[in-house]
């Protein structure tokens, strides 16, 4: 039983590995972003309803962020064109771009972009909520933060829509109060990001790193199972795991002849077989 092949081909660190493949990694980036971050096919394959809901919320939030942040940071504003009361021009930073009629479909769409975003998010939230309330399986693995995230999205969207309600139908009544409430929900929502379920917005892109790590490792040598002798993973990842396990308090080294003999060099299938054989021996054998 030979220990896994750990030789010079294994990169000392993931970052070095990434640097070494910078060119190829850049080329691969657009398609990875498209599939992993934007179209999210991995969710669709799990459940269409879940995917639809996630896409609604995702694009709603993206749209809202694309409007809100430039607007509040002054990167985006609108000016009326000359003396024409109904014509506006979009200014990105200080550069005037598109001109449009306020009364046109385009104009309506631009001025209601945030409402559209809110409706998208709400649609997603309701699909999610429906699933959560109707699927006993989902309910069983429910975590307290799951509802909080949905409640937050709901609050931001609804308070935002109330602003439109106030300006369109109520002649601006309650606008100031509603505006404060809306701002508050947005700020609270943004502050909540690092702590709850929505943290995955920052974390999930780590998946791109995993894709790079995989591509890199696939070109390197495989790990060889100490029990069956078959390849079972990349030597790089097994080496990394052997590195990291002692740091988190585990010692899977094996007391024996070879210095670096390690249980982690066993393939998962052989781990299951070893457990079964060892247990069977402790009850007087199989059969």
């Amino acid at each position: 039983m030979a220990p896994a092949a750990i030789d010079g081909d294994v990169e000392p660190s993931g970052w070095d590995a990434f640097q070494a493949r910078k060119g190829r990694n850049l080329v691969a980036l657009p398609s990875l972003v498209a599939t992993q971050l934007l179209t999210q096919g991995f969710i669709r394959r799990r459940s269409r309803a879940r995917w639809l809901a996630h896409q609604f919320v995702f694009w709603g939030c993206i749209l809202a962020a694309l409007v809100t942040f430039p607007l509040t940071l002054g990167l985006l504003h609108f000016e009326s064109v000359g003396q024409e009361a109904d014509r506006y021009q979009v200014y990105l930073s200080r550069v005037g771009t598109l001109k449009f009629d306020a009364g046109s479909i385009l104009g309506w769409t631009i001025f209601h972009a945030l409402d559209i975003a809110a409706v998208l998010v709400l649609a997603g939230v309701f699909i999610f909520l429906r699933r959560r309330l109707h699927d006993p399986g989902a309910l069983a693995v429910e975590r307290s933060g799951d509802f909080l995230a949905l409640a937050g999205l709901f609050a931001v969207s609804v308070t935002g829509l109330f602003l439109t309600v106030s300006s369109t139908w109520l002649g601006g009544r309650f606008y100031a109060a509603l505006n404060t409430i809306h701002a508050l929900t947005v700020i609270l929502g943004l502050m909540y990001l690092p702590f709850g379920k929505l943290f995955h917005i920052f974390q999930r892109p780590g998946n791109l790193g995993v894709a790079y790590y995989r591509q890199q490792n696939a070109e390197g040598p495989p790990a060889v199972c100490r029990r069956c002798g078959d390849d079972f993973a990349s030597a790089q990842q097994i080496a990394d795991l052997r590195d990291v396990l002692p740091q988190v308090g585990f010692d899977y080294t094996i007391d024996g002849d070879a210095d670096d003999d390690n249980y982690q060099d066993t393939c998962p299938r052989c781990r299951r077989a070893s457990v079964t054989l060892a247990q069977t021996a402790r009850v007087g054998g199989f059969g």
């Binding site: 974390q203 998946n207 995993v210 993973a233 990842q237 795991l241 982690q264 998962p268 299938r269």
Partner: peptide, 15 residues
């Protein structure tokens, strides 16, 4: 949260 790295798949002593 899961980013599909398979560390857990490879590290679990029971497979």
């Amino acid at each position: 949260r899961c980013i599909g790295c398979s560390n857990c798949v490879l590290a679990c002593p029971f497979g």
